[in-house]
Design a protein around this nucleic acid. Structure first.
Length: 677
RNA sequence: GCCCGAGUAGCUCAGUCGGCAGAGCAUCUCACUCGUAAUGAGAAGGUCAAGGGUUCGAUUCCCUUCUCGGGCUCCA
């Protein structure tokens, strides 16, 4: 056999026998590499290990520790899931099964049950399906790439309408599985033919797929778990049939799978809903209604501290505080346009027959604050000398969120926006946006979040958007400049803007790397026009101001939930509802303990005392459970010398610290956390 | 709103194949007064989410509603 020459990623050439495959190349380089190999990248295109090489090919071997290798493992596991479901549920058909973060899913439709509707999976089905998947893996079925023409593909998939839709519908899609009338498929030939082959003319399982795949089901697969069942609309479209989705997680090794499970457990421990109940911070009484929170004394204290600090910073930042009512006549939201677009998302009106003429009057609970702030702006003639005019309000708003979307404090029906509206001259917009973004990021950092990236949502192509193209371009450019000044990564989100203007949203990564969308800064090209806003310029002429909407926390409730998860309930000292707990060793130390607590309270710290009814160890344990920053233990030695025993959260126990020194440490710590503000 | 699952003491959960409702923690009382992550004893605590149906009898089976959880869709 004549040799051919292959170029490796390091630029070196390697002679191999003609007909050598990607897998064969890996084998020739080393046993270890061959064992870890999942796929190859040949001339920039991902290929199966069975792909034959040609002279001059540039080849990189992708192993199971590479991101693309893991992707392939997850993708191939999804195929095994589909095969297992089709084996166990005769008459089932399938949609798509992509890779997602940490795993994969596959969508199925089961045959109709007694009620004529497609059947659904039950939780008990998951172990059965998983067991069947392990059998398939143990069979070592190869993944065989088969290119067949579309007509043949339509025959093979004749009983699978979703696949037919893919064959027919995606011809123009460059990432399509069909190209020039040829459909790419992957077949898993079984060791023995299926009892009920679900495909016409194939003894086993076959799926439309671009690939590539692991070479066979035994290779790299097996470190997976099916995790949940859900309904999901075909092609994500609410008007299309709802399929049954099975989610799974898959990894390159058992250790990785175990580590993933551990991460989930850790995340569950910091779930703000769980911590909110455990730490007695807030609750959602059924009697009030879904998505409507009450804050208990400790949660209320944390929230007050958050709000107080925000108020101080806004005051210093040139904001003026306004207050507006929770309800309004419908006319206001007609003028703003909200009733046209978002009536579904609002609580239904409160109707009065005996007011406003024969039709009566409808009052609405407000879903947003901006129209009220606009009325304040419009309450009298405005001069350019007043601009930029920055109005701030902790505004309570109510939105009738769909019942299925409500989630703890992060998605509620009643919330308090830390809402500001800035009215400025068009020529000042860019500068205002830059300083605004700076202000926003600075404040978020003070609350302990410091890992951000930005998202720039811009106008889409085909949709209808308010304002002119020129205005959009100008506003978008101003936002880009502001983002550039921040030095943060900027992720484009084309078409993601609201109809009324482009926006920047600040995404924050929390202590365990999850991202949360927090602040938004939004340019509004619509409302100033709808409300006919004007100011008198230095030229004596009337001009239309630019309006910027901006929420920093998003909502106080949501931000509270995010911080709670970020800190896993262990708030920094400045935000802790109880900062110091003093524990007398015996009750005859009570007077001394009370004196220390009184002194700390007199200095503005939050301290309490728990008497010696219970053993010290148990009282310490309870204080740790409450995640208090400091526990002070005082006994005979301390009473004698004017000291305390300091047990700091996450620190070592220190005996004999003078009360002056402890107080000084506490003061320094809180000052450092709030920047002295 | 849609699909699946779950609601038993304040919390975490047993249990009842249809026949008087259970534990641990928390709470309260009493005793213990102890130097760094669970002292002991006792008491109290429930319309078994709500409403309807089947039944001699329903917390248990069926239906409806409410709430919660996981997804989908949505999020001005």
């Amino acid at each position: 056999m004549p040799d051919i020459s292959i170029t490796l990623p390091d630029g070196s050439s390697r002679p191999v026998a003609a007909g050598t495959t990607v897998g064969g190349l890996a084998e020739s380089i080393g046993r270890g590499l061959a064992k870890a190999a999942v796929i190859g990248v040949v001339n920039g295109v991902e290929r199966d290990l069975a792909h034959p090489l040609e002279d001059g090919d540039e080849v990189a071997i992708v192993t199971k520790t590479d991101e693309r290798g893991l992707f392939t493992i997850r993708h191939s596991t999804a195929h095994v899931l589909a095969q297992a479901v089709l084996d166990l549920f005769p008459g089932a058909t399938f949609g798509i099964g992509p890779v997602i973060e940490d795993g994969f899913y596959y969508d199925f439709q089961l045959p109709a049950g007694a009620d004529g509707k497609p059947a659904t999976f039950a939780p008990e089905d998951l172990p059965r399906i998983e067991a069947r998947m392990r059998e398939i893996i143990a069979e070592t079925q190869p993944f065989v790439r088969v290119d067949i023409d579309n007509d043949r593909a339509r025959e093979v998939f004749a009983d699978h309408p979703f696949k037919l839709e893919i064959i027919d519908g995606e011809a123009e899609d460059p990432t399509s599985v069909t190209e020039k009338g040829i459909a790419r498929t992957y077949e898993n030939p079984p060791s023995t033919p299926k009892e009920r082959p679900p495909f016409r003319g194939y003894p086993g399982f076959i799926d439309l797929c671009r690939g590539p795949h692991v070479p066979d089901t035994k290779a790299h697969l097996g470190h997976f778990a099916l995790t949940r069942i859900a309904g999901a609309y075909w092609r994500g479209d609410e008007s299309k049939p709802q399929l049954q989705r099975i989610y799974g997680t898959a990894w390159a090794s058992k250790a990785d799978l175990d580590a993933h499970r551990e991460r989930l457990e850790q995340a569950a421990l910091r779930d703000h809903r769980k911590l909110g109940a455990e730490l007695d911070l807030f609750s959602f009484p059924d009697e009030i209604g879904s998505g409507l929170a009450v804050f208990h004394p400790k949660g209320g204290l944390v929230r007050k501290l958050m709000e107080d600090y925000s108020r101080r910073r806004h005051e210093a930042g040139g904001y003026e505080f306004v207050y507006t009512p929770h309800i309004t006549k419908g006319a206001l939201f007609e003028e703003s346009g909200h009733l046209d677009w978002f009536a579904d998302g609002m609580f239904p009106p409160i109707h009065f027959d005996d007011e406003g003429g024969p039709e009566g009057t409808d009052y609405y609970v407000k879903p947003m604050n901006c129209p009220f702030h606009i009325l304040i702006f419009r309450s009298r003639q405005r001069s350019y000398r007043e601009l930029p005019l920055r109005m701030f309000e902790f505004g309570g708003v109510y939105r009738y969120e769909k019942s299925g979307v409500i989630h703890g404090l992060t998605r509620v029906r009643g919330m308090t926006q830390d809402d500001a509206h800035i009215f400025c001259a068009r020529e000042d917009m860019a500068e205002e946006l830059s300083s605004l973004l700076d202000f926003v990021l600075g404040l978020l950092r003070d609350y302990g979040l410091d890992d951000f990236y930005l998202e720039l949502s811009t106008r889409g192509e085909a949709e209808k958007f308010a304002g002119t193209e020129e205005e959009w371009a100008e506003a978008t450019a101003a936002l880009e400049v502001a983002a550039g000044t921040s030095g943060l990564e900027l992720v484009p989100d084309p078409g993601g803007a609201a109809f009324y203007g482009p926006k920047i949203s600040v995404q924050a990564r929390d202590a365990i790397g999850r991202t949360w969308q927090l602040s938004t800064i939004q340019v509004d090209l619509q409302l100033p026009q709808r409300f006919g806003l004007e100011y008198v310029g230095s030229d004596g002429a009337r001009h239309r101001p630019v309006m910027i909407h901006r929420a920093l926390f998003g909502s106080v409730e949501r931000f509270f939930g995010v911080l709670l998860e970020h800190y896993a309930g262990a708030f920094p000292t400045w935000l802790s509802p109880v900062q110091v707990r003093v524990l007398p060793v015996r009750n005859d130390h009570m007077a001394y303990a009370d004196r220390i607590a009184d002194r700390l309270r007199a200095e503005g710290f939050r301290a309490d005392v728990v008497d010696a009814t219970e053993k010290l160890g148990n009282r310490i344990r309870k204080a740790k459970g409450e995640k208090l920053p400091y526990v002070l233990v005082v006994g005979d030695d301390d009473v004698e010398h004017g000291t305390v025993g300091v047990n700091a959260r996450g620190g070592e126990v220190e005996r004999g610290v003078s009360i002056d020194e402890f107080e000084q440490r506490l003061r320094v710590e809180v000052l450092a956390q709030t920047g002295g503000r």
